Amino acid sequence: MESNPWKTLKKELVYENPWIRVENHQVLNPAGKEGLYGKVHFKNKALAIIPIDENHTTWLVGQYRYTLDEYAWEIPMGGGLIDQDPLESAKRELKEETGIFAAKWTEIMKIHTSNSVTDEVGYIYLAEDLSFGATEFDETEVLKIIQLPFREALEWVMSGKITDAISVAGLLKAARILGY
């Protein structure tokens, strides 16, 4: 393992809400010069799920993303508390957003979402052997759920219709695992 060439001189809390904490770090950079480094700490793990049935059909979730000021298509995803098992949180998220339950779960990827400014860690799962129930959206969610062939979801990635980094990475990794 490589050693850390950065030295933290001081940390200052800039902003905090239930989901994130923003810090300003005074540092000595690898060249030994003083500088500032902003860090966004996520209070949850990112969890993303690719549900896939025996016919290689999958489900995507569409929603308006406030931070982007645009509509986005994604694999089902959400957050899980840092101290909770990510798989259990992923099961909850899949049920809440799509009403889908899965008997078979495979972790296919651990991902850092934007490691230059945040410490967020994401886990992506393949969910198989599916059954269906009712959704339980959060009060902030207005979601559209669509079902489509997995190959078409891959086409959406390649055409730029899906731009969410976790969705892109997860769908491409799943494609490799599934033999596409």
Rank of each mutant, 00 (worst) to 15 (best):
A169N: 11
A31G: 01
A31M: 11
G133V: 05
L60E: 03
Y37F: 10
Q147T: 09
G160N: 05
S167R: 06
A169D: 04
S167P: 07
L178I: 11
D85W: 05
I124F: 05
S116M: 07
V22A: 09
M109S: 11
K43L: 15
L94T: 02
F137D: 07
G79D: 12
V168T: 10
T58M: 10
I177C: 02
G79M: 09
D138V: 01
Y37G: 01
K11G: 01
V157R: 07
L68S: 05
F150D: 06
W73V: 02
A174V: 09
T98E: 01
Y15D: 05
Y15A: 09
R21H: 03
G62L: 01
E16D: 04
G35P: 06
F42R: 11
T67K: 14
P149M: 07
I177R: 07
V22L: 14
Q84V: 12
I82Y: 09
A102K: 12
V27D: 09
N17D: 15
A46N: 12
Y125V: 01
K144D: 07
G179V: 08
P76Q: 10
I145D: 01
S3C: 04
Y66P: 00
V142A: 13
L60V: 04
G160S: 04
I145G: 02
F101T: 14
T58E: 07
W73Y: 11
G122T: 07
K91F: 09
E12L: 10
G38Y: 15
D164A: 03
N44T: 14
N17W: 06
D53Q: 11
L9W: 03
E107N: 14
G79W: 08
V142Q: 13
N44Q: 15
M109W: 03
V14H: 02
Y64V: 04
H41G: 00
M77G: 14
F137W: 15
E88T: 08
I124H: 00
A72N: 04
A169K: 13
L94A: 07
H25N: 12
K144P: 00
K43E: 06
L171M: 07
P18W: 06
K144W: 02
G32N: 05
M109G: 02
G99T: 05
Y125I: 00
R176S: 14
H56F: 14
K45E: 05
V142R: 13
L171Y: 02
W73A: 02
D129V: 12
T67R: 14
P18L: 09
I50F: 02
K45Q: 15
N17Y: 08
N55C: 10
D164V: 00
F101I: 04
Y64N: 01
I162K: 05
Y15V: 03
R151E: 15
W105F: 08
T135D: 02
T163P: 00
K110Q: 15
T140P: 00
Y125E: 03
T113S: 10
T135Q: 09
S114W: 07
G78I: 12
F42I: 01
A134M: 08
I162F: 02
Q147C: 10
R176N: 13
K91E: 10
N55W: 10
G133Q: 08
I20M: 13
E136T: 05
P149W: 09
F150T: 06
E74S: 08
E2T: 12
K43N: 08
A127Y: 03
I162M: 07
A31T: 13
